[in-house]
Design a protein around this nucleic acid. Structure first.
Length: 277
DNA sequence: AAGCCAACCTGGACGC
DNA sequence: TGCGTCCAGGTTGGCT
């Protein structure tokens, strides 16, 4: 569910609710996510103040004294802030209580998420973060991303798959990879190593435009209502999607039916007329 | 060694 | 109503 814009919106929505507050209780479900949630390590965070929340790609990093929590929402994860006393929703796997009575809950039915605690100095070298590529919302995106794509010269990987590779760009998922390609007029199957420099520039710009538009709209909440921020609010970018999930429906620009195909086991969507090669 | 692909899970939508 | 099938915002390890 959550790609970079959704994770960033969760981060921003968490800050006024829990940042600066002291952790007074922690409990875990005992059910493993992608990896086990270490109850002892989380329990040791009691008494610490949540000093800040940052993001790298789709990961959230919470500063808790000398420790850091690294969170990933996987496919179905939500981070919700509830008033004390509200019953936990099904699939709540981590609950952090803050002074003042707020509860931060990690709810994740599919359990592809991640909730690690480590020493703060370990964060930089933790492999999951160290391997991440350029973050599209930081620095000179077009230069950095164009450079990252240029480094794939010779690769025959489909450009949609390259955009999903977190070692290349950190934070794109299947929705925005497809949307950025639609905006750039590039077909998802085009080998990334065969894009000309101008087309790489166009793609880099399209990635930035797509992500900022999604961020401004509060993220993408699909029909199943999967994504919500920490207060339970939905995002409105779903109505602006050009191709994702629109197989058979007319292209917004030319009216041709949008096509769906499967690349690396995941749906790719494109307009056969506007996205050549 | 790059690049597919199944596997990890639950739940919702759909067809019969 | 129920049951079976397919699909899903992500990542990873194993195979060719």
């Amino acid at each position: 569910m959550p790609e970079l814009p959704e994770v960033e919106i969760v981060r921003r929505s968490l800050i006024p609710l829990v940042q600066g507050r002291r952790v007074v209780s922690v409990s875990t479900s005992g059910v493993p996510l992608r990896r086990a949630v270490d109850a002892a390590a989380w329990g040791a965070c009691q008494g610490e103040v949540l000093a800040g929340i940052s993001r790298r790609g789709k990961y959230l990093i919470m500063a808790l004294g000398s420790r850091a929590a690294v969170l990933h929402l996987g496919m179905s994860g939500r981070l919700l802030v509830h008033p004390a006393g509200r019953p936990a929703p099904p699939h709540t796997h981590l609950e952090v209580g803050f002074a003042g009575g707020r509860l931060l809950r990690l709810v994740d039915p599919r359990r592809f998420g991640l909730a690690l605690v480590m020493a703060s100095e370990e964060v930089i070298t933790w492999p999951g973060l160290a391997a991440l590529g350029v973050d599209p919302l930081e620095g000179d995106l077009e230069g950095d991303l164009e450079g990252a794509l240029a480094r794939l010269a010779g690769s025959r990987v489909a450009v949609r798959n390259a955009l999903l590779d977190q070692r290349v760009v950190a934070g794109l998922g299947n929705i925005y990879a497809n949307e950025a390609l639609a905006r750039a007029g590039i077909r998802p199957t085009t080998p990334v190593g065969r894009l000309s420099a101008p087309r790489r520039m166009r793609l880099a710009a399209a990635v930035r435009e797509t992500l900022s538009a999604a961020l401004a709209a509060g993220g993408t909440t699909l029909a199943d209502g999967g994504f919500v921020d920490a207060q339970g609010d939905v995002g409105y970018f779903a109505v602006a999607l050009r191709v994702y999930g629109r197989a058979g429906q007319p292209c917004l620009d030319c009216g041709s039916p949008i096509r769906r195909l499967v690349l690396a086991g995941r749906s790719a969507y494109y307009c056969p007329r506007c996205q050549l090669r």
